[in-house]
Simulated scan of single mutants.
Amino acid sequence: MSKRAKIILAIVAVLFVAILVWLGKKNQKSIVTYETEKPFKATIVKKAVATGKVIPLEEVEIKPQIAGIINKIMVEEGAIVKAGDLIATIRVVPNEQSLQSAKGRINSVQIQLNNAKVQYDRNKKLFDKGVISSQAFEASELAYNQAKNDLRNAQNDYQIIKRGSAGSSGANTNIRATASGMVVEIPVKKGYQVIEANSFNAGTTVATIADMSKMIFEGKVDESEVGKLVKDSDIQVSLGAIEGKKFPAKLNFIAPKGTEENGAVQFKIKADVTLDDQYFVRAGYSANADIVLEKKDSVLSIKESLLRFDKKTEEPYVEIKTGEEGKFEKKTLKLGTSDGVNVELLEGIGAEDEIKIWNKASKEEKKS
């Protein structure tokens, strides 16, 4: 073998050895180190959130006493009124058939009155001459007085049908407030036709008056949480229109019967809201209520993101650091209350154990 061939063979051998060494280092598995975290003390509050709105505790609908057309509205929405204040006036549009019937009754009663007067006048002359007894005279007098009274009633009925009132006061055509408060809604306008409340109809609402100093939260909670609610418990109400402010409230009503909505059973709740004079809370504001279901003060806790669940038993577990470098040991846990971020630790590990933070390896591992 020539000297040149030997040199080439030696170079090939060195390169082969270098490649083997490089491949060996590349395939050698380095120790993966993970960041760890210890359990900590925390206050865990489990809450339920109810969505709803704030509405006045006392709200009164003002309805007319007679059917007709709105002639004039005396107040605007937002006005403060007292009981008895004039809200609107109504112009009566009489029913033609009823009007003619009432007019016919007047004519009929007038005929009876004329006849009763003739008999009364005749009997009075006879009584004064002593021809008839006082009993016969009194009977004709009674009939005459009764006929006059019937005429007055018939005339009053006619005026009520025609104008909505028998006198000049117009009591039936004047719509007045029946309670004190703020006018929160006027659903009608001038020219609207309205009807009175009766046995077959609720009547037309002319205005709604509410006491804006007393507001309640009305919302709904899911059936999975309603069993944990306690009447008279304190809650916090947040309004969508007022950022960064929570109003204290006291739960005073939990519905005994739920309603199904979108496949889930919802239960109505109500709470008295304590208002702040710095804020004007309008009726109908959308709101959320934070209801404390359970609270644990200063308990040993871990982050829920550290938890894993066994595929077979579905029990929660974590991996804690052992004495050997890069080695972790699986520990099954018993958990308590959770707020969605932290969870109470009852059994399984101690306060000094170091828990593996999943998906957070050291910088060396990331580089490799």
Rank of each mutant, 00 (worst) to 15 (best):
A255K: 04
E218S: 14
D222V: 04
N252T: 06
L251Q: 10
S224G: 11
V230A: 03
V221P: 01
I269W: 10
V226A: 09
E260H: 12
S233L: 04
L251T: 06
N262A: 15
I269S: 03
D234W: 01
G244M: 01
K268N: 14
P248A: 00
V230P: 08
D277A: 15
A249E: 02
V265N: 11
I254Y: 07
K220W: 12
T259Q: 09
E218D: 14
F267P: 00
V273S: 06
I216P: 01
N262R: 10
S233V: 02
V273R: 03
E261M: 14
E243G: 11
D234N: 12
K246M: 08
V221F: 01
K220N: 05
S224Q: 14
P256V: 06
I269Q: 07
L251I: 12
N262G: 06
I216Q: 13
N252R: 11
Q278G: 10
V230I: 10
D277C: 10
K246S: 09
K245S: 01
G258E: 01
E223A: 09
K245Y: 02
E243S: 09
A255N: 05
K246D: 02
D276L: 14
E260F: 14
K270D: 02
F253G: 07
Q236K: 15
N252F: 10
K250Q: 06
I242H: 00
I235E: 00
F217D: 12
K270F: 05
K250C: 02
D272G: 05
D276S: 13
G263D: 13
P256I: 04
K228V: 09
L229Q: 09
M215D: 05
D222F: 03
E223T: 04
V237H: 00
G240E: 14
E223I: 00
E260Q: 14
L275T: 13
A249R: 00
G240Y: 05
F247D: 01
N252S: 12
E223W: 07
I235Y: 01
K220M: 13
K231C: 06
D234Q: 04
G263R: 05
D232I: 07
V237R: 01
A255L: 06
V265I: 15
S224A: 14
A271C: 10
D234M: 09
G263H: 07
E225N: 13
V237T: 03
G263C: 12
K257R: 12
A255C: 05
I269F: 09
E261I: 14
D222R: 04
D272Y: 06
L251P: 13
I269Y: 07
K257L: 06
P256N: 11
K270L: 07
Q278R: 10
F247V: 01
Q236M: 15
E225Q: 14
K246L: 04
L251W: 06
K257F: 13
K246Y: 03
G244S: 02
S238H: 06
E261F: 03
E260N: 15
E223Y: 05
K220G: 14
F253T: 05
G258Q: 04
N252M: 10
I216Y: 04
K257P: 09
N262L: 08
V265K: 06
V230Y: 03
A241I: 00
V230H: 12
A249F: 01
G263Q: 13
E218P: 13
K228A: 13
D232A: 04
D222G: 13
E243T: 12
G227S: 08
T259H: 11
F267N: 03
A249D: 09
A264V: 15
G258N: 08
N252W: 07
L229G: 02
